[in-house]
């Protein structure tokens, strides 16, 4: 008998908890977060990762100079096209878009100049001596690559 009572009590508690959102209208979030990557951002990320891999493979002696340069050109073009798309996707004039435009300009310069950090892969503005993300010395890293 006590088992039955405990069971019924348990069932009522569980059912009440599950039905609670329907009664009170409490809702679970339904949409994506702001911080999730968009498709374009994802493509940009893939291109930057690839750039990093190529840098390291060259650095580790797994890629010839000629192959390295050709691939770097190709992947940089991919990254730039993703950046262009990202730029177009943002409405002009908003503070966010200004921020991103500045970022894109910097990235473009970086990709053209080749100041991608050997250590962490962060693209740095042309002329940087140290990586803005990890602090590694860019000039030496580039020289060694």
């Amino acid at each position: 008998m006590s088992g039955l009572l405990a069971g019924v009590g348990l069932a009522l508690l569980v059912v009440a908890w599950i039905l609670h959102p329907l009664v009170t209208g409490r809702s679970a979030p339904m949409h994506r977060d702001d911080d999730e990557l968009t498709d374009v951002q994802h493509r940009k990320r893939i291109a930057l990762l690839a750039l990093r891999d190529v840098e390291y493979d060259h650095h580790a002696g797994k890629l010839d100079e000629a192959d390295y340069l050709a691939m770097k050109r190709k992947i940089s073009a991919e990254a730039l096209s993703a950046l262009d798309e990202e730029e177009r996707a943002l409405s002009p004039g908003s503070p966010e878009s200004l921020d991103v435009e500045a970022e894109i300009r910097a990235l473009r310069a970086t990709l053209r100049e080749g100041a991608v950090c050997q250590e962490c892969g962060n693209p740095n503005a042309a002329g940087s001596r140290f990586c803005g993300a990890c602090g590694a010395a860019l000039a030496r890293a580039r020289a060694s690559g």
Partner: peptide, 22 residues
């Protein structure tokens, strides 16, 4: 002499990882 990070980092997004030395 460090420049500002050029790339915006999404909050809970894992940072792209270098395949190389890092």
């Amino acid at each position: 002499g460090v420049t500002k990070p050029a790339a915006r980092r999404p909050g809970n997004e894992p940072e792209p990882q270098p395949a190389g030395v890092g």
